[in-house]
Design a protein around this nucleic acid. Structure first.
Length: 465
RNA sequence: GGGACCAUAGGGUAGCUUGGUCGAUCCUUUGGGCUUUGGGAGCCUGAGACUCCGGUUCAAAUCCGGGUGGUCCCA
């Protein structure tokens, strides 16, 4: 895959994930196959969130005065907001913003809902589309003007400690999701100039793309009391005083889907973890004029068996050559392919092919096929995960000098440096290298790579999307 | 934020320099028909394009201006 950009663009189109020819910049159409992939990914996320959050749905439009309330927040988004200014030909009294994110839609309602400490904590989420007028070059799923799959959670707590704890929970939930999807990630604390507008601090997930750039795939923000103050969210304590609660919010987007595609795909097309594959098993009958009844009845029998055990199975009955079906199944990332033909039946077996390694496995008709499929899916996800993590870990390089870090990044890798943690120093580093400090990780000792003062953290520098 | 390049069937392209030969090339795709089917089938017969708006000209896919969309580089 020497040209990732081109590969990504092609695979989205050829595997019918989405059609980016929609006549508005940065907006694409989810095609049936892509929509299913998206659906299964969001279902996995919902399962995780539903354990302690409630799903809700807030309106798309935000009145101008609400959007404008939180100064720092609005400043972070104002150049990217789409506005609704007219109803028909009549100009609206108050402009309506199309949400770029939903804090300003949700928090005025929190102010109404929260009266007492008994109402807390609140933990809810929604999966919606949001709009941002991107002026940079857009890219399907990665930088878009309509984020079609914005899964945002918002929580409110009595104590600062609880909010801190919630940040950890958010990180845990996202880690679990990425583990299921076999996506490797780095969690770091964003530098202060790169945090969510209005947040106290931002924890971020970045993954590593095949072209050597990192992609932010999730963020968890500790909002402190900033928004509570702005939106006048207060609760009554046991002592009948009124206090500001602490808030967090965290979100994922279409970029998670981009990562599943980019992380595992190969020159033949998509490679998908079985858990989210639109079709998990495709059965390809090999039909000749003679003996097709036998083959077709065996195909039907095996299809029923697999289906009854809860797998998404498809029989490719089309009147085209098998070879073409093989290529298509590979392009679509179908985890498991089963070939059934007269030759196999004579030998009392069927042939399985796993998508990740393309290894062919002969399975006797006497064996327990379902057990084998379950084991294979588990092993495939594990194999994909190991491979992806190995690539990420192998590309994080500890460096001692700025020059080395530049070389590392030019080499398509991520540099780990020691950093003092001072804003001015960090911004100088970014200025000088033209690169981004992703964020800081564990505390460290030694000297800052740039200013030479005592280093406080390990920080990561990379070329980012 | 600044700059460069690009736009021809569903996808990929030739033609553009030097306007007329274009009633537009080739591959892929695609409708119908027959023969086929263990890694992208073959034959027959059909279908499908000059990004949009304006300008120059006897004449524009080709030249000029703008819009829209795309790609890339620098900050």
């Amino acid at each position: 895959m020497e040209n990732f950009s081109e590969w990504f663009h092609n695979v989205l189109e050829e595997a019918e994930i989405l059609d980016s020819r929609y006549p508005i910049k940065g907006m694409s159409v989810w095609l049936p196959k892509g929509f299913k992939l998206r659906k299964y990914i969001t279902e996995e996320l919902r399962k995780l969130l539903d354990e302690e959050h409630d799903e809700t749905l807030f309106p798309l439009l935000v009145p101008e005065n609400e959007l404008a309330k939180e100064g720092i927040h609005v400043k972070g988004f104002e150049e990217e907001v789409y506005w609704v200014t007219h109803g028909g030909s009549k100009e609206l009294n108050e402009k309506l913003a199309i949400r770029p994110t939903s804090e300003t839609a949700i928090y005025p309602m929190f102010a109404l809902w929260i009266r007492s400490h008994i109402d807390l904590p609140i933990k809810l989420y929604q999966v919606v589309n949001t709009f941002r007028y991107e002026t940079k070059h857009t890219r399907p799923l990665i930088r878009v003007r309509e984020i079609t799959t914005f899964a945002e959670a918002h929580t409110v707590h009595v104590t600062k400690e609880e909010a801190e704890e919630q940040v950890k929970t958010g990180i845990k939930i996202y880690s679990e999701l990425f583990d299921k999807l076999a996506i490797p990630y780095i969690v770091s604390k964003r530098p202060s100039w790169d945090k969510f507008p209005g947040a106290d601090y931002t924890m971020a997930f970045d993954t590593f793309f095949p072209d050597g750039k990192t992609l932010q795939i999730g963020t968890v923000h500790n909002l402190g009391q900033t928004f509570a103050k702005t939106f006048d969210i207060k609760y009554e304590t046991t002592e009948s005083t009124h206090e500001l609660p602490y808030q967090t919010c965290y979100g994922l987007s279409d970029r998670v889907i981009a990562s599943v595609i980019a992380t595992h795909g190969d020159e033949k097309g998509l490679v998908l973890p079985a858990i989210v594959a639109p079709v998990q098993v495709t059965i390809i009958p090999i039909i000749f004029k003679d003996g097709q009844e036998e083959v077709l009845s065996k195909v039907e029998e095996i299809e029923k068996l697999i289906k009854d055990n809860g797998f998404r199975v498809n029989v490719d009955n089309r009147d085209i050559r098998p070879g073409k079906k093989f290529y298509e199944a590979e392009l679509n990332g179908t985890p498991l392919r089963i070939e059934i033909g007269p030759r196999d039946l004579k030998e009392n077996k069927i042939v399985l092919t796993r998508r990740d390694t393309l290894e062919k496995i002969n399975v006797s008709l006497e064996d327990d096929l379902i057990d084998i499929i379950n084991d294979l899916f588990e092993d495939m996800t594990k194999t994909m995960k190991n491979k992806a993590w190995k690539r990420l870990n192998g590309n994080v390089i500890s460096v001692e000098t700025l020059l080395e870090s530049k070389k590392t990044i030019e080499n398509g890798q991520i540099a780990s440096i020691k950093w003092c943690g001072e804003d001015s120093c960090g911004e100088d580093i970014e200025e000088e290298t033209g690169l981004d400090i992703l964020g800081t990780q564990e505390k460290t000792s030694g000297k800052c790579i740039y200013c030479g003062k005592d280093a406080k953290y390990n920080a990561l520098i990379a070329k980012t999307y």
